Simulated assay, not measured.
Amino acid sequence: MNSVDVIRGDSPIILGQPHGGTFVPEEIFGRLNANGQELADTDWHITQLYDGLLDGATVVKSNIHRYVIDANRDPAGVSLYPGQNTTTLVPLTDFDGRTIWRDGQAPSEDEIASRREAFHAPYHAALAEEIARVKARHGVAILYDCHSIRSDIPFLFEGQLPAFSIGTNVGATCDDRIEAAVNEVAFAADGFEAVSNGRFKGGWTTRHYGQPGRNEHAIQMELAQRTYMREAAPWTYMPKRAEALRAHLKTILQTLNDLALSGVLTRSGDST
C-alpha cells in the first residue's frame, strides 16, 4: 500500500486529508493496546464525505493512521496549542487522554525519526508538489484541509463542538475573502452551528502552507462527526445525515473555486 495517494485535478482547490487513513503496519499495530487498536481518533469516512463535491479538485490523502505518525503535526514536534491538551507527532494517548501503547512499547526518538521519514515526509512532499502544480496552472492555489472529530471530547475542549470549526490561524493563512466566503456559508447553514478560529485554529498543515503573499492559501475545516456518522464503534457512515452536510460543503468548495478562478486572489510580486 502507498503511504499517500494523490488524485490530480485541474481546479485551483486541493483537498488535504491527513487523518483519514487507517493503515497501521502489523509490527506497530501489535504494540498498541486494546484502546489504541480501536483507532478511535480517525477522521472516519472523510474521503467519502468529500467525494464528488467539486469536479476537478485535487485530493492528497495519507493512508497511514495518525497513531503511526500524525501528518498534521510539526515534524519538529512543536505543540500547535501550547498550554492546552493535544496529541503529539506520534501520539502517546488518544483524544480522551488514555494511553494507546502497551507497557514499554511506545516508540523511541529514533523510531519516531524513522517514521517521520517513511510516512510524514512523503505526504508533505506530495502536498507541496500539488500546491506548486496548481499554482503554476492558475496563479493561485487554495489548500482546503479536511478534518473531522468526535463532537464531545472533554480532554480537548469544553462542551459540544460546533458542526463547522473553521481555522485560518486568526486570518494568517489565507486571504480574508477566503475565510469570509467559508464563514458566510457555514454560519448561514440551517440546523448547523459554526465557529471561526475557536478551539481549532488550523493545524501544522494549514499554518505551514498558508502563505497568502505567495498566492498559496490554506484553510482548515474541522467537522463534528455527529453531522454525518455514528460517533462510536463501528463508526458507521450515515448517508442521509451526510447529504445535508455535503450540500453545504459543496457550496463552500464551489464558492472557493469560483473565487480563485476570478483572479481577485492573485497578488503581483510573488517570488516563487
Rank of each mutant, 00 (worst) to 15 (best):
residue 116 R to F: 07
residue 103 D to P: 15
residue 205 T to K: 11
residue 183 N to Q: 13
residue 98 R to A: 13
residue 184 E to N: 14
residue 132 A to K: 09
residue 267 R to D: 04
residue 97 G to W: 05
residue 63 N to G: 04
residue 41 D to W: 07
residue 203 G to I: 07
residue 63 N to K: 05
residue 157 F to L: 13
residue 128 A to F: 03
residue 193 E to D: 14
residue 249 L to E: 00
residue 222 E to Q: 11
residue 137 R to V: 13
residue 1 M to L: 11
residue 60 V to F: 01
residue 218 A to V: 06
residue 241 R to E: 14
residue 72 N to Q: 09
residue 47 T to M: 11
residue 97 G to A: 04
residue 107 P to F: 07
residue 112 I to F: 02
residue 154 P to K: 03
residue 9 G to T: 03
residue 177 R to L: 08
residue 55 D to V: 14
residue 74 D to G: 12
residue 188 A to Q: 10
residue 51 D to H: 12
residue 151 S to N: 11
residue 19 H to D: 11
residue 97 G to P: 02
residue 266 T to D: 04
residue 181 A to D: 00
residue 167 G to N: 03
residue 38 E to S: 14
residue 148 S to R: 09
residue 228 Y to C: 03
residue 70 D to N: 12
residue 268 S to C: 03
residue 190 D to Y: 00
residue 69 I to G: 07
residue 35 N to Q: 10
residue 199 R to Y: 08
residue 142 I to G: 02
residue 190 D to I: 02
residue 193 E to R: 13
residue 20 G to S: 13
residue 191 G to A: 02
residue 12 P to F: 07
residue 173 T to C: 09
residue 13 I to E: 04
residue 110 D to H: 08
residue 157 F to C: 04
residue 188 A to I: 03
residue 60 V to L: 02
residue 151 S to E: 10
residue 25 P to M: 05
residue 263 G to D: 06
residue 88 T to E: 15
residue 20 G to P: 13
residue 34 A to Q: 08
residue 189 A to C: 01
residue 25 P to T: 08
residue 157 F to A: 13
residue 222 E to H: 07
residue 223 L to T: 06
residue 159 G to W: 05
residue 141 A to L: 00
residue 88 T to Q: 15
residue 94 D to R: 09
residue 150 R to V: 05
residue 115 R to A: 12
residue 135 K to F: 00
residue 262 S to C: 09
residue 222 E to W: 07
residue 215 N to Y: 00
residue 15 L to H: 02
residue 174 C to R: 02
residue 125 A to L: 15
residue 233 A to R: 13
residue 133 R to N: 00
residue 18 P to S: 10
residue 2 N to D: 15
residue 138 H to K: 05
residue 268 S to L: 08
residue 59 V to P: 05
residue 20 G to Y: 11
residue 240 K to G: 11
residue 116 R to E: 14
residue 179 E to F: 00
residue 4 V to A: 01
residue 106 A to T: 08
residue 101 W to Y: 07
residue 89 L to T: 11
residue 223 L to Q: 08
residue 94 D to I: 11
residue 95 F to S: 14
residue 90 V to I: 15
residue 266 T to L: 13
residue 141 A to E: 01
residue 47 T to P: 06
residue 246 R to S: 01
residue 120 H to S: 12
